[in-house]
Design a binder for these strands. Sequence first.
DNA 1: TTGACATAATTAGCTGGCTAATTATAATCG
DNA 2: CGATTATAATTAGCCAGCTAATTATGTCAA
Lengths: 184, 184
Amino acid sequence: MLQLRDLPNKAVLDKFSGRYPEADVSAVTAFLHLLRVATDLSAALDSCLSRHGLLQGRWWVLILLMREDQSISTPSVLAEKAGVSRATMTGLIDGLERDGLIARLFDKEDRRRVSIQLTAAGQAKLDEVMPDYYTRLRLCMDSVTEAERDILNTILVKLNAGVSAFSIPNNKTTGIPAVHQAEA
Amino acid sequence: MLQLRDLPNKAVLDKFSGRYPEADVSAVTAFLHLLRVATDLSAALDSCLSRHGLLQGRWWVLILLMREDQSISTPSVLAEKAGVSRATMTGLIDGLERDGLIARLFDKEDRRRVSIQLTAAGQAKLDEVMPDYYTRLRLCMDSVTEAERDILNTILVKLNAGVSAFSIPNNKTTGIPAVHQAEA
DNA sequence: TTGACATAATTAGCTGGCTAATTATAATCG
DNA sequence: CGATTATAATTAGCCAGCTAATTATGTCAA
């Protein structure tokens, strides 16, 4: 994700909105601000996890396993739930297996399948990481009131619905007939 | 950034907050929701830009140049403002130069320095991309009211201040004496 | 029953980020 | 002056994602 160190100030916004009348200044400001803070939060989370020898991808796999009964799942399901490709999940599992945090269990019934199970060491790692993560997150969000959290969620739902606007064909500005974009 | 496809539901949150009393459920929910939506917005922006042959890094360099008088800057300043390393900026500039969107100008005074200038083709590319971007962004944010945008910004400022909580040493949960962490 | 297709996981190779090392040049101080 | 230090950009090589291809296995219908 883009690391926006230098958000536009008033003068820059005026310059751009002068040249591009399509610009909605408060929308641009809020959008860039959101991306910027989310990137910083993500980096901060990484720095917290790395103290425990984890990164977001591997940490999330452990969490997904702990959510399951018996702490068991499969690579393809984990890939889907973590939002990464199966190839990437294979790599994450390789690393976690090497560290003894998860184990591969080969399926006798269907030999294409592999089950992934959290080991005792993996659970112990979570029991070390999660209290630290939760404590820091609580502190991070401390000044955001419950009312603000509710409104934030409301806004995020709206934004999530709006994401599709970025994929809708726009023949006016691209000059490409919409029919061609629809084919792509 | 983590691609959280599967946010925790009530049952999962209860399970985790039962085992880890440090968890603040509404904080966790809002935090993950924010990261999730920001990731989706970032990916959507990429898909918009890629229709014009750009990605976020290269697009942002063009914007940073257009902000400047004469549309000129230097690799090190651009790296700082874009939040990437100088090495990465060298690569971005290589690509943009190859496509003729920017030009390297060698400084006669100080031969270590290189200036980077937006070319006419680069400005033309922005004039093609920005209206499309702004139009889509306006649509994306359409249902978020001005009042909500204000509150969002307020919340983001608070979260930004809270980011440091992730880097504060926490000797209770890590078991590592704070003095050692401070040295690291 | 066997050929075509489907599915699961992995491997191979690409990309864009990073850090550390390198090259070139300038500035400073004994 | 000339050695040391500082600065700017680049190169080299690492890592974590990705897609596409591969391997292995299972399913189904002619």
